[in-house]
Simulated assay, not measured.
Amino acid sequence: MGISAVMVHWFARLHKKRAFADANSIVELGPQDVMTTPAIFQSALGPMTDKAAMADLLGEMFKDGRPKPWAQQALYRHLGLQDYNSIDMFDPRANWRLDLNYPCRLPRRFSVVTNFGSSEHIFDIAQSFRTVHDLLEPGGIALFVLPAFGDIDHGFWNVHPTVYFDVAQENGYSILDFVYIDNFGVRCRLAEERPDEPFGFRDLPIKVEDCIQPNLPRTVTLQYIQNLNNPDTARLGMEFPCIVFDYCFVALRKPGEGEEQGFVFPTQGKYRAS
């Protein structure tokens, strides 16, 4: 998976929440390609960036309107994450060529760990969550963008909302942000069609409160049916193999110095947001 239009707006949302205020290093589980347009970056990041800096950023990220292979590094530097690293079994850009089915024993830890479309491709998915935990320094932030519903055969797994709440509860994480993005692919294309409009996170039909309620399966299923019959889906969704699919965007903060522990696997219980 790459950095899409909605993800860029999410980075701006996290920046406004000062999620990266004390962070300077980042490691990605898989180097992420930028997969959207310069206009999206101008729309999402422009309001918090002066014109000269924005022009420099776009110049670093794009050539003739197309993203450069290292565009993600320029984006993260712009957010204050100067020290970029990545892990991947196959991508030659990665600092470490490792199989994420197994523990990653690196010589250091990081302020931010991203898991953007990686865990669903890792057969030992539980190990991937433990790897994120082990790579984070105390007080560090884990960022997840993973499929939740409808993305059949895109990798091995979908990752349901309860995973994040239960992992957070068992490991003492605070939930900085949780967003359920229904009809993710179509919403990305709509954002690119209307780049001057802010992305309406507050207007999304499935709220975080829904994700900690026992009626979530029905809520998601009814919204899926509505999205499947939406004219925008008919116009834009056929680009994607599954037409309609949902993702969760989640930011978790690890406990600080003196409070962290080894990763604890949750046993599924009652949903409870922190």
Rank of each mutant, 00 (worst) to 15 (best):
V208S: 15
A148W: 00
V8Y: 08
F144S: 03
E209H: 13
F263P: 03
D124E: 12
K207Y: 13
E192I: 15
C242A: 11
G237E: 07
Q127F: 03
P266I: 04
G200T: 04
Y84M: 08
A44W: 00
M61P: 08
Q32M: 12
I212W: 02
K63T: 15
T131H: 00
C248F: 00
T221L: 14
I87A: 11
D210F: 06
A168W: 01
D50L: 08
M7I: 04
I26R: 00
E60W: 00
V250N: 03
I40W: 01
D33A: 15
L45N: 07
G150M: 12
L81C: 09
T233G: 04
A12V: 06
V163M: 15
K207C: 13
G172H: 14
R66L: 05
D203I: 07
M61T: 10
I3C: 05
C248H: 06
M7N: 03
E209D: 12
Q268E: 11
L98G: 05
I175G: 02
R13T: 05
W10D: 00
H15Q: 14
D83G: 05
D50E: 15
P38Y: 12
A12M: 08
Y164P: 01
F178N: 01
N95I: 09
F144V: 02
C242M: 15
V34C: 10
M61E: 09
L45Q: 08
D99R: 09
L136E: 04
G258L: 10
Q72V: 10
T162I: 13
L216W: 03
L106M: 05
L57K: 00
V34M: 15
G262F: 06
G117K: 14
P138N: 04
